[in-house]
């Protein structure tokens, strides 16, 4: 059962004469961890700001939980937790007080106990009484996640939640997001400029570039079932190409550069090619699968 939670159609937003979002459409279903992938400046944050009614779009429609955002704003926001760009808190207040303040105007009330439990959940137990002024970016990010979860929303929207974190922090935040899905069955939307990140956590995604949604679908379909570009560095590339073309006439083989050749193929073909070449006495120095999606995404970024 695919129950749509967010439906965005032909969204557009101008800042003055500059069209930051031109034509973005996508659908997030219940239980998705939905990746919102695009290079810097693609319009991810702008789209997310529209979803949260921080800015009003110039055109297009947004429905969340099956209701139009424009006419059901409060009702919808009751059930959303979010971080946009970076989490900012009242620096002169403690972590607990900050959570109390945001909880008071969120969907449901939270007790002191809820707040303690939430601080524990994000690994900030013992720091609740400290002023946010002294928190590192990683601690604020975790406090931000606590703030998004406190009122137990069904939908969580995170804008580049791992940007600016150290490797340890990135892993912690990713694990937190995965736990939201597995333990609490939340719907999560997260934006990122890294395909690898979306691959790890998301099950569906949309790629946006220059304010337009380019491609949408399940991450598995887009990433894994895509044809690979297999790059092989080996001795005697000319003869290797002849051999492969003779054995598998359907494959397209190119001499890429030096002693490296490139073959477009399905994943299952990789061991067969490897076996063939080794068997015929070619020396393989490296064998590197490059996914087309990655290529595609890199091209988008470099355009």
């Amino acid at each position: 059962m695919n129950e749509p939670i967010i439906e965005v159609n032909h969204l557009s937003k101008k800042f003055g004469n500059f069209e930051a979002v031109k034509d973005v459409s996508f659908t997030v279903n219940k239980g998705d961890v939905f990746g919102f992938l695009g290079p810097n400046g693609a319009g991810k944050s702008t789209t997310i700001r529209c979803l949260l009614s921080l800015i009003s779009p110039n055109a297009g429609s947004i429905a969340i939980f099956g209701k139009q955002l424009a006419s059901h704003r409060s009702e919808i926001l009751n059930n959303i937790g979010c971080i946009i760009e970076k989490p900012d808190f009242y620096r002169y207040l403690s972590a607990e007080k900050n959570l109390e303040i945001f909880a008071r105007i969120s969907g449901s009330d939270s007790s002191k106990k809820d707040i303690q439990e939430m601080l524990e959940f994000v690994g900030l137990d013992g720091r609740g009484k400290d002023k946010v002024k002294g928190f590192s970016h990683g601690m604020k990010q975790r406090l931000g996640i606590a703030q998004t979860l406190l009122h137990k929303p069904d939908l969580i929207i995170l804008d580049e939640p791992t940007t600016g974190l150290d490797p340890q922090g990135i892993i912690e935040v990713r694990n937190l997001i995965l736990r939201l899905k597995t333990e609490q069955n939340k719907t999560v939307v997260l934006s990122s400029h890294q395909l690898s990140e979306i691959e790890i956590i998301a099950n569906r995604m949309v790629i946006i570039n220059k304010g337009k949604s380019v491609i949408e679908g399940s991450v598995e379909a887009l990433v894994n079932e895509q044809e690979l570009l297999l790059q092989i560095e080996l001795s005697d590339p000319e003869n290797a190409i002849k051999l492969i073309e003779m054995e598998y006439p359907a494959l397209i083989v190119k001499h890429l550069y030096g002693s490296t050749i490139e073959i477009a193929l399905d994943k299952e073909m990789v061991p067969k090619i490897n076996y063939l070449l080794v068997n015929k006495g070619f020396e393989i120095h490296s064998l590197e699968p490059k996914r087309k999606l990655e290529d595609f995404f890199m091209k988008i970024i470099q355009e």
Binding site: L52, L54, L77, C82, D88, F102
Partner: peptide, 8 residues
């Protein structure tokens, strides 16, 4: 930003 994304 945080304030304006609350249901108030």
């Amino acid at each position: 930003r945080m304030l304006a994304t609350k249901p108030i």
